[in-house]
């Protein structure tokens, strides 16, 4: 559009554009203000605090540069926490999601009592993490229900100090986390499966494909978008793991079940090292941000065309 025609159109444009932008900004303002106040400002504040040695009470005057970050990366406790987060991500992707997928495929068939099974499998997800933690802590006490269950099955030799053995505690926690969340992923995948028209699979079967071939080459690719979202939620959830572990072990025994979020909370609120705690928060934020952006850019791109990463449409 040339300058002259713009000038010529001025009366109309000059009248319309401001109205449109005024409306948009009026609608945006409340959300934007809240977002700035409760998300962006705290993120910036945390980044600021992370450069100080600060207990939360004294004036913010002991500038230490990046020392809090160096301490974090050099600390065995924090390195264990990071590797625990990634252990849960890996186990979730290799065990929990395939398990949820096979259940979803099973429950997608027509059979008597299908809804009952769907509800039962979904139920654990409804419980809060804190309640799940308290309940399993009781069940896992030595000699309690789970131990006596093993004994009565003649499997007494398999009994472990479930939450007390530093070498076993993450396995126990992973099983409980999976118990709580497999139903959620199952429902997600089930919804995805139901969006796939039956005719496509039937056509393949008529053309002579085996059941596995039909699943592998028809169902799985069509389920792709749902599966990718499921994996994404699983990864972000694993990075933020806190409530259940805090209730069950407080990151113990001997720091064996620390996660980044637990290390952050302990530093800030138990130990009153607000500066160091902020540094841990920033590191956790960066992990989550990089993972989320990379995943959106490289994996989810075709599903969310035009969102966050693709600025040019």
């Amino acid at each position: 559009m040339s300058a002259t025609s713009a000038t010529g159109a001025r009366p109309r444009v000059g009248f319309r554009v401001p109205t449109k932008w005024v409306t948009i900004s009026l609608f945006l303002l409340p959300a934007l203000a809240l977002y700035l106040l409760f998300v962006l400002v705290p993120v910036i504040q945390a980044a600021h605090y992370s450069l100080y040695k600060w207990n939360g009470l004294q004036p913010l005057d002991n500038f230490v540069g990046l020392r809090n970050y160096a301490t974090a990366l050099g600390s065995d406790t924090f390195r264990t926490a990071v590797s625990n987060n990634f252990l849960i991500i890996v186990l979730s992707l290799t065990l929990q999601i395939p398990f949820s997928l096979s259940l979803a495929v099973l429950l997608n068939r027509r059979f008597r009592g299908r809804t009952v099974f769907r509800v039962i499998f979904f139920l654990p997800y409804v419980l809060s993490e804190a309640i799940t933690g308290v309940v399993f802590s009781l069940l896992l006490r030595p000699g309690a229900l789970i131990d006596s269950g093993f004994s009565s099955l003649g499997l007494g030799g398999l009994i472990q100090d479930w939450l007390g053995d530093p070498g076993f505690v993450m396995i126990t926690l992973f099983v409980i986390i999976s118990w709580k969340y497999f139903g959620f992923h199952m429902i997600l995948l089930l919804a995805g499966l139901q969006g796939i028209p039956r005719e496509i699979e039937e056509a393949a079967l008529i053309d002579g494909a085996g059941r596995w071939q039909a699943f592998r080459h028809i169902t799985l690719p069509l389920l792709g978008p749902t599966l990718r979202v499921s994996v994404f939620l699983s990864m972000i959830g694993a990075l933020q793991l806190f409530d259940m572990i805090w209730v069950m072990t407080k990151g113990g025994p001997l720091g064996a079940s620390n996660t980044m979020a637990i290390a952050m909370f302990k530093a800030g609120f138990t130990n009153q090292q607000m500066g160091y705690g902020s540094a841990l928060a920033v590191i956790l934020f960066l992990f989550a941000l990089v993972l989320a952006l990379a995943y959106q850019r490289f994996v989810l791109q075709r599903d969310v065309e035009g969102a966050v990463t693709a600025f040019n449409g």
Partner: peptide, 19 residues
């Protein structure tokens, strides 16, 4: 896994602690 925005984590943590 559960998806909680990072900003709620501290709040959730405090709740869990209180619980």
């Amino acid at each position: 896994m559960k998806l909680i925005p990072t900003r709620f984590l501290a709040g959730a943590a405090i709740l869990a602690l209180v619980a």
